[in-house]
Design a protein around this nucleic acid. Sequence first.
DNA 1: CCACCATACTCAAAAAAGTGAGTAGTCATA
DNA 2: TATGACTACTCACTTTTTTGAGTATGGTGG
Lengths: 189, 189
Amino acid sequence: MALRHAVLAALLDEELSGYQLAKAFDLGVANFWHALPQQLYAELARLERDGLVTGRDVVQDTRPTKRLFRVTGAGLAELDRFTASASKPSFLRDDLAVMVQAADHVDAGRLIERLTERAAVARAKTELFGTLLRTMRGDRSEEEFLRHGERIGPYLTCLRGLAFEQGNHDWCERTIAVLRERRAARAGG
Amino acid sequence: MALRHAVLAALLDEELSGYQLAKAFDLGVANFWHALPQQLYAELARLERDGLVTGRDVVQDTRPTKRLFRVTGAGLAELDRFTASASKPSFLRDDLAVMVQAADHVDAGRLIERLTERAAVARAKTELFGTLLRTMRGDRSEEEFLRHGERIGPYLTCLRGLAFEQGNHDWCERTIAVLRERRAARAGG
DNA sequence: CCACCATACTCAAAAAAGTGAGTAGTCATA
DNA sequence: TATGACTACTCACTTTTTTGAGTATGGTGG
């Protein structure tokens, strides 16, 4: 159950409400741990019940009252304990790969459509991650930032996300090229 | 619900029993769709109920009787329909990345241990995938195989798996180097 | 002024995935 | 001769994830 640890890790830098956490997740943590807002609200409630985070209500004039959470000492200890335990292998879970596995038995044109869509999504994500990385390191070079920066965890996970999406993009393009060439060869021969 | 489509895709080439399917999954399909044997048995039963696969009992002398499944016409149609639908974005789900996200707040030594373990696993998988790819293409070059091979789906998904594990490996090594350098700088300064 | 989007959540339920144990025979290894 | 590993499954259970709604208010664009 790493969702709870992902939430703790996301709350390390800032005090956030469930709503803000959901946004932060979408932007950062979702690269390696996707979760829906409902899960986050539920998890925050459990974490508070277990004393790993504390919440406080913040009344706002124009917006509804929100509840901000921050990690407690017990929460930090829990994260540390988590790091000491063996990590499960990371899984890729990909609809598109299932389709490609069946490539020789399904319509190639439609498969190329799906791959093209995915390539575009992957491209957009790499650009987003590039921007995020530049924002995090400010005017420092990556080497310099990673050597002396204060908070490098999110930067390092963002690097993984970037490489992952570049991998997605490259694979889509390569697969599209292969499928097109085979279609052309079949049409020509 | 792509497990059912992953199972269909895995059964395209060969008639397999649940047990064999579990093995085949571990070796190939698990790269993009992990599932436990129990899930596969249950899914095969559902697929047969729905007419997307048919099973036949094979009595063996020394081994228990097994039930072999193959994809039906309806199963192929279902796969084709699946390919026509939009694919969901692929998610990375990684314990280790959660730990790295918290890198600045947890014990660096233990994190390096986890990363080292993962790097080794990733390395082993890249070697396995390399072997698998060579086996699939036989004595042909990759270009040649992808142009004229009969069954390229599994090859293409294996390429994705290879790149993914190489990405894992590179990221682990890079992250280890960064953490070590920071630790050294802290100890020295 | 009305639709729509953003904030800030909650609730219920279904579906999917994972955990743990058990059955039962065969074969190799020590 | 027992120990464990492999074939080939099944069953029960829990946890996790997803789906789909619903509440309530305030601001923005046309």
